[in-house]
Amino acid sequence: MCLVASKSVANRLVGLLSVRGEDLGADWAVRVADSLGGRVSRAEVHQELSEIYAALVTALGSGSTDGHDEAFAEVRALLTELSRNRAMRGFTPSETAVSVFALKQVLEPVMIGEGSDPEAYLRFAALLDTLGLFTIEVYTGAREELISAQAEQLMELSTPVVKLWDGVIGVPLVGTLDSARTMVVMEKMLQALIDTGSEQAIIDITGVPAVDTEVAQHLLKTVVAARLMGAECTISGIRPQIAQTVVALGIEFGDIVTKATLADALRHALRRSGVVLSSSAGVR
């Protein structure tokens, strides 16, 4: 469409949207609020869409109907805020995009029919398609950020570091140990060694389903990092199945102390710390 024709269509749209703005905006807000099943109040929806409606009219006043133009920067900014808000509150992409597409349903009876302006409607519908797709793109990005943040939080929660005794900390691992999680384990353990002034650390792998070459390498890196901090590590939870796998794979733990149970590892760490153990009197 040539520039003159585009400006003409934009001007006709501005005229229609300005004259009937209050009615059209209210109808738009009702349709969107109904589609969200009451999970967002009508007042909040009306406020969001009123701002978008006003920005849309202003952008069309520039003579453009291309949603990618700089004239629609404010519209895109408002849609970005709306999309991120919907994503964080658990709405679906469709429920988010309907906030834009519902305006088509509002304008269709007005702009198509006897004495109406189908050309302007088609142009405006294309504009809303562009803006609707934009909301989905923003929504997808926001959801990915949210999922990534939640994954990091879960990783933190699944890798606790506990003080077992004065000078002894424990790191009970549960689940698969990969590179990303190894970094979290290493960072949290080294920080705990500093915070508690401990010189003994126990890495318990009772909850790790399997140990392969990669997992073994991750454990060795963690032990080396602790040694650089002046601490000694003991690996506990070496079950018979894991022991057989380690031997079959030819994995060498070198001079790293390994124990079958956490209790055995704690007993060893306490002895290394100078704590005297007595079977009759307990630990002194």
Rank of each mutant, 00 (worst) to 15 (best):
I203F: 12
A180F: 11
V211F: 13
A265F: 05
D204R: 03
E214K: 14
S273W: 04
P209Y: 15
C233Y: 08
L164K: 04
L164E: 03
I194W: 01
W165E: 00
Q217Y: 11
E187L: 11
I235A: 01
A260V: 09
G167I: 00
S179C: 11
I251M: 10
V223D: 09
G207S: 10
E214Y: 10
R227H: 11
L177P: 00
D212E: 09
I194S: 04
C233M: 07
I238F: 05
E187D: 15
S273N: 13
S273C: 10
W165N: 04
A201R: 05
M186V: 02
A263I: 02
M229V: 15
V184T: 14
V224D: 08
S273E: 14
L228H: 13
T206K: 00
K259Q: 05
A216G: 02
I242G: 05
V208H: 06
V215A: 06
D178G: 13
I203K: 02
D212L: 13
A210K: 03
V171P: 07
L219F: 09
G254R: 06
I251P: 06
S198H: 15
E232K: 14
Q217L: 08
L262Y: 12
V247M: 12
A226S: 09
I202V: 15
A210G: 02
L193D: 04
L164M: 15
L190C: 07
A216H: 03
I256W: 03
A226Y: 09
G254E: 10
L249A: 08
Q241T: 05
V208G: 11
I205W: 14
T176K: 04
T234S: 12
G175N: 12
M189E: 01
H268S: 10
A269D: 06
G167C: 00
I251Q: 07
V185R: 00
F253H: 10
V168E: 05
M189H: 02
A248Y: 09
V224G: 01
R271M: 11
D255L: 13
A201V: 13
V174F: 14
Q217A: 13
K188G: 11
I238R: 01
T206W: 05
D195M: 10
T245G: 08
L266N: 03
M189F: 01
I169M: 03
M186A: 10
P240T: 00
L220E: 03
L173S: 12
P240M: 00
W165L: 00
R239C: 09
R267G: 08
F253W: 11
L220G: 08
E199L: 12
K188E: 10
M183I: 13
R181G: 11
S273F: 13
C233V: 15
A210N: 12
M186I: 06
V171F: 03
A216N: 03
L220S: 06
T206R: 07
A260L: 14
A248C: 06
A231D: 09
A231K: 02
A231H: 01
L220I: 15
V246T: 05
V246R: 03
I205Q: 10
I202K: 08
